[in-house]
Design a protein around this nucleic acid. Sequence first.
DNA 1: GGCGTGTAATGGAAACCCGA
DNA 2: TCGGGTTTCCATTACACGCC
Length: 432
Amino acid sequence: MDLRSRLLHLGLRRASELEPRPPRRRSVPLEAVVAGEWRTTPAGQCFVAEQRFSLAYTHGRYRLSEALSVPPHVWALALGDPAAEPFDVRRAAYLDIETSGLSRSGGTVAFLIGLGSFEGDKFVLRQFFMPDYGEEPATLHLAGEVLGAADGLVSFNGRSFDWPILEMRYILAGQQPPLDPRQHLDLLLIARRLWRRRLASCALSALEHPLLGLERDQRDVPGYLIPGLYNAYVQQGDAEPMADVFYHNAMDIVSLVTLTARVGHTLQAEAPAADPYRDPLALGILYERSGRPAEAVRALREAARSPDDTIATDAGRRLALLLRRTGEHDAAMAVWQELWARGDVPAAIELAKQYEHRQRDAAAALTTVDGAIARLEAGIAGLTRYEHRRLLRDLHHRRGRLMRRLERQAARRPAGEPSPRPTQEEEASSGR
DNA sequence: GGCGTGTAATGGAAACCCGA
DNA sequence: TCGGGTTTCCATTACACGCC
C-alpha cells in the first residue's frame, strides 16, 4: 500500500472533500484595538499598523535623532571587526519579532514582524501581523518590502533569534530572504561587553531603566506570555490582548533606537559614565580587541584607579600585559609593582619574570617569589583551591630554579665579592 | 525550553632568547 | 648545539545568557 492509500485508509480526507472553514467569529476585531489596516496580497491577508515619530520624539532620556548623531565609523567597535565597513544606522532596519514560541525549529512562526526605519525627518515604525497561520506568506511578503529596502539590521539578540527565525520562515515559505544582513548591529552583544560588569542582567528590559531612563507602563506584556496570547487569538479571535503585544513590540523597537544612541555615545566616551571605573574597563577591553592599544591603555589606566579592588586588579593586569605586548616594559613593570604592593600574586609572578630575564637580577626575582609564596600561604580570599594550588606549584618551581641559578652564580664569583641576594633588612624595607 | 553567540579558561605549538 | 623558560597565537571546551 502506498503512502496516499495508507493515509486515506486511516481516514484522511482529500482537500476537495473538506468543508470550507467558517469565518471565525471575532468578538473584538483587531482594527478596533490597534490603529492599522488590512492589506490583501495575492498571497493572502495581513494587518499592517504604522506609526510615524518625529526625530525629536523623546523615549526615556534620549531623542530618536541622537542615534543619527553617531558617526558610522564608530560602529566598527560594536561590530567587533576593525576592518568592518562603516555602518549607517540611518539606512538600517530596526527589527523585532514576536513568535509562537522560543524554539528555532520549523514549527515556530513570527506572527508579528516589527520594523522601524528612518525616512526623511521621521522614524517610521511598521508592524506586520499574521492573523492566522495560513496568512504567513502575505505577512512575509509585505515585511520583505521594507527589509529589502534596508541596508543592514539593528536588533537585540537578533543574530541568534530574530533573523535566523525570519530567514527560516522565508525559506520554508518558498520566498527569497529579502536581505543579506552581513551588516547586523546586534545591540545585545555590545551591551554585554559594555555593561555586564555593572548590571546584573543585560536583557533589553533590564537596560531600559538604568541606561535609557525608561519605565514601561501597565500595558506592556511580559514576553513569555506572548505565544499563549497569540494562540488564544487564533483559536478564539479576541484581539484585545493583541493590542498589548503590538505595544510591547513597538516599545522594543523604539528602545532599540535610543539604545543605539546610548551605545554610540558610550563608544565615543560622550555619555556620562554612570560608573567611572567599570565603564572605562569595558571600553579598554573593547579597544584592545579592536587593535587600538593607545585608547585601550588610556581607558584601562582610568579603570585601574578604581577603589574597588576587583575592578582595579582586573584593569591593572590587562593594562600591564598590554604594555608589555606593545614593548613598554618599564611602564608594565610599574603597573605590576603597584599591583604587587596591593598583594596581587599573579603580578608578583610577572614581576619575577621581568627581574630575572630583563633586569638580570635573579636575587630580586627570588625575593619577589618568596614574598608571593608567603602571601599565598597566609591565605587569599577569592582564590579557588585549584588556583591556589596551581600558583603555589608554579612559585615553588620558579623558586627552585632561581636558587640553583644563584648558587651557580655564587660558585663563579671570586672569593670576597658580596652576594647579590639582599639582606633580611633590605628585603623587609623593599616592601616585596 | 532550544539554540546561537560570546567569553573565559586551558593547553599545545611555535618562535625566540639565553645560559650552559 | 641543546634545553629550559617566556611569550604569543590558536584551537578547544565549558559555560552563561538572551530571545518569546
